[in-house]
Simulated assay, not measured.
Amino acid sequence: VAVTHAGLTVGEDGATHQMLEDIALMRALPNMTVVVPADAAETAQVIRWAASYQGPVYIRMGRAKVEDVISPDAEFVPGKSTTLADGSDVTIMACGIMTQQALQAAKMLAEEGISARVINMSSIKPIDEAAIVKAAEETGAIVTCEEHTVMGGLGSAVAEVVVRQCPVPMAMVGTEDVFGQSGKASEVLKVYGLTPEHIALEAKKLVEAK
Rank of each mutant, 00 (worst) to 15 (best):
V46F: 10
K107H: 13
E67D: 13
W49K: 02
L84A: 12
R63L: 06
M121E: 00
E129I: 12
V69K: 01
I114G: 12
S81A: 15
V46Q: 10
C95L: 03
Q100K: 14
D39H: 01
A116V: 10
K80H: 14
R60P: 06
L103P: 00
A40N: 13
E111C: 09
E75T: 15
V36R: 13
A51T: 14
I127G: 04
P72K: 06
P72C: 03
V77P: 04
D86V: 12
E67A: 13
Q101Y: 11
E112L: 06
A74I: 03
A64E: 07
E138F: 08
E138I: 09
C95K: 00
V118Q: 05
A130G: 10
T99F: 03
S122I: 01
I114Q: 12
G140F: 00
G113N: 05
L103G: 00
I127H: 06
I114H: 12
A105R: 04
K125M: 06
F76E: 00
E137P: 10
V133W: 01
V66P: 00
K107I: 10
V57R: 12
P56Y: 05
I114E: 10
V57G: 09
I132L: 03
F76N: 00
L84E: 13
A131L: 10
C95A: 03
A51R: 15
E67K: 09
I97K: 09
I132R: 02
Q45S: 08
A102H: 02
G79L: 11
P78S: 08
G62N: 03
D89G: 07
E137Y: 08
E75D: 12
K65P: 04
A51N: 15
K80S: 13
K125F: 03
